[in-house]
Amino acid sequence: MEKFNKHTGTAVPLRRSNVDTDQIIPAVYLKRITKNGFEDGLFAAWRNDPAFELNQPQYKTATILVAGPDFGTGSSREHAVWALQNYGFKVVLSSRFADIFRGNSQKAGLLTVILAQEEIEKIWKEIEAKPETSVTVNLESKTVTYGSTTLDFVIDDYTRWRLMEGLDDIGLTFTKIDQVSNFEEKRASFKPKTLPIR
């Protein structure tokens, strides 16, 4: 996973609430067996509409998605995160994220930042008026900055540390693998096993 410290880029407004993972990437695009190439399915149902924000020339190079509340509800498909990353997004801002989506994004290194809905509204207005506005998301100082505005955001220290170090969870767990073995020795014998087949 790439280390995430700070990112500066332009932002695209997505003025919709409850954008679920079926909107982010419909199921028919999930058939790949790799982690890349999902950008063509991103927001597939809306991509043919010239009015859709991502299609507007002023937002073509945006790397920060400013989404409505309850972003990423629905299925557990991590493909939704990959699709956003494959397309070029580094950060998503929203007032509420679905739990599984947020967990997935933190594993894959896509930064999801929670801001109050009124702040999201202000950012929407700013980037609609001035699409070239540069937005900086600083994980080290836990701030989002655009124009003369700086906003603090909250993220738990552990996740922040992992993202900043670019650490892979599996590697971290392997440092505790003896504890896992100890736990296994004490597990009750009546717990079911899938093998042998009965």
């Binding site: 991590e78 997935n104 894959a108 969870d169 599996i170 767990t173 693998i177």
Partner: peptide, 11 residues
């Protein structure tokens, strides 16, 4: 998610 699937498979 898939990263977690990998995590559970491995650990």
């Amino acid at each position: 998610g898939t990263s977690e699937v990998e995590h559970v498979l491995a650990t």
